[in-house]
Amino acid sequence: MILTIAAQEFKSHFISPLAWILMAVLQIILGYLFLTQVETFTLMQDKLLNITGAPGLTDVIITPLFSNAGVIFLLVTPLLTMRVICDERRNKTLCLLFSAPVTNSDIILGKYLGTLGLMWVIVILVGLMPFTLLLGGDIDTGKFFANGMALILLVAAFASTGILMSTLAEHPTVAAISTFGILIVLWLLNINQTMSDKPNELIQGLSLLYHYQNIQTGLIDSRDIIYFLLYICTFIVLSIYCLANQRLQK
């Protein structure tokens, strides 16, 4: 049942021009950022060769590409998720799912996975770009996979926040703005911590950016992975709770 709803949600993005335009725009932005990094590297690679411990191709091109992609997703996710539940409620089509033999968690998870599907398609687009580097050199595949995994988890976390806000908000715009607000706070939470040598562990532990960058280095830490998984769980559970409560309508 979850997959049926997810498949429908996923398809609905691709039968409207939205997904295609989004992919085109993101491709141009990220492609441009990628190619500038490539040029930077080709210019300075001779100098880097002589320094011990200098960053390699992967550090100069791929890691920044994925960092930029993270920021772009921060901007795009609210727009993608704002309509998910909110629009259904406004168009009174949520009734269809409510009177069908499906549970609240089926609805939330189905909608979540459907939207996430579109976002993962874009992640694949981003992930395919580094492969062109193989034409002219070697890449650190381990770090590349770490980056890919980091982005997949990050996007999943973003989408879960978006779903919760879409469930709560009366209006899609409100959902988008509040999603953006929450994400940017969690993203920048550790910005004043990076400068001090005794960072507040709690604040650092809550920051999306901190864990994202940790995975990007290629050093996979169980804490970072679990952070993302728990983050997603929390928001999904809250969404299911909110949807169930709306059905009761005090």
């Binding site: 690679q45 034409l135 002219g136 050199g137």
Partner: peptide, 19 residues
């Protein structure tokens, strides 16, 4: 010390243009 091994990128002008 451990050093990254991916330190060379040979792209010609043409290749970059194609990309």
């Amino acid at each position: 010390i451990n050093e990254s091994e991916d330190r060379v990128l040979n792209f010609s002008e043409k290749q970059i243009f194609a990309l």
